[in-house]
Amino acid sequence: MDWGFIFERTMSAMIGPEAMVFALAAIGLNVHFGYAGLLNFGQVGFLAAGAYGLGMTVYWLDLNFWLGIPFGILYALVLALILGIPTLRLRADYLAIVTIAASESIRLFVRWRGNSDITGASQGINEFARPFYDLNPFVNGQFYSLGPFKYLGRDVWVLMVGWTIVMLSLLVVWQIMRSPWGRALRAIREDEDAARALGKNAYVYKVQALMIGGVIGALAGMLQVIQKSSVQPDTFNPVITFTIWAILILGGPGRVWSPVVGSMIYWSLIVFIENVLRGLPSGARDTLENTVRLSDINISQLRFMLVGLGLLLLARFRPQGIFGSREEMALDDR
């Protein structure tokens, strides 16, 4: 087994494009669930809003790529209002039901053949991100490496911009959550009626939180499609939402850094397991193939199963996540 190679791949995944996109998406979900207590089971819908806001601006409206970014943000804000206004006066479960249905509706809507002039339908939208890569100071097709980190020039550029956006988002979240606004939001998470009795308009705070987390999710969606240079409807499936949840729970909701660290751990684990399984010595490999029918094809499924098992163990032994405090979590039930 080539441990050097496995280490290199694992480290590169830790701050790679997936880790970056999912960290950002989880920062948005952390605003929803960690701070405001909103059960958003359709975060992928906000990613799609950002991605299609960007893609459709170029493909359908025939406008400049850079104009697509404000459009993506606008779509996410509109989506948050559509989801939030009818449900946030009601109990928390209503938002959960509406978000999961809405995110799946969005995917089905954009891949519908009748919309092929607007969204590209199942073909998606390609070749729209050129203006982004025109600014790339690195050579797109060349490999760059620094220690164990090794990426293509185009990815180096995406990662630089992406992680900068991640850090700026963390800064904003940290700032608003330590302010009186964040205090009121946490109070609403703890007990909405108590906050209302003390003069806080819980409904407005919750709508605002849904919008902020949604916009951060949309930025994640934009980064994802810029990195792939392609908007594909079926990449916005519910599994993405649950992966974002897994990352947030892994890190511990309601802490500034947990989405980032959760995402880094999640994606390095995935890549580590995959590479270990692929790099097994042939004897061990044959044994696994004969007993549990492990093959090249199902290795990528097995890695998700193993991570799932890990999450189960986490829920059993460290339910508060990496950053959460168990003591604090226990208070929740009283």
């Binding site: 700032q175 009626d193 108590a194």
Partner: peptide, 28 residues
């Protein structure tokens, strides 16, 4: 309705009204 996962002092500070920093843009 004690806000369990908030410190006692934050429970208290929450009560003050009106607070400028409770507006989203001002909080930044």
């Amino acid at each position: 309705k004690a806000l369990s996962r908030m410190k006692v002092i934050d429970n208290m500070k929450l009560g003050a009204t009106p607070q400028r920093g409770e507006s989203f843009w001002v909080s930044l």
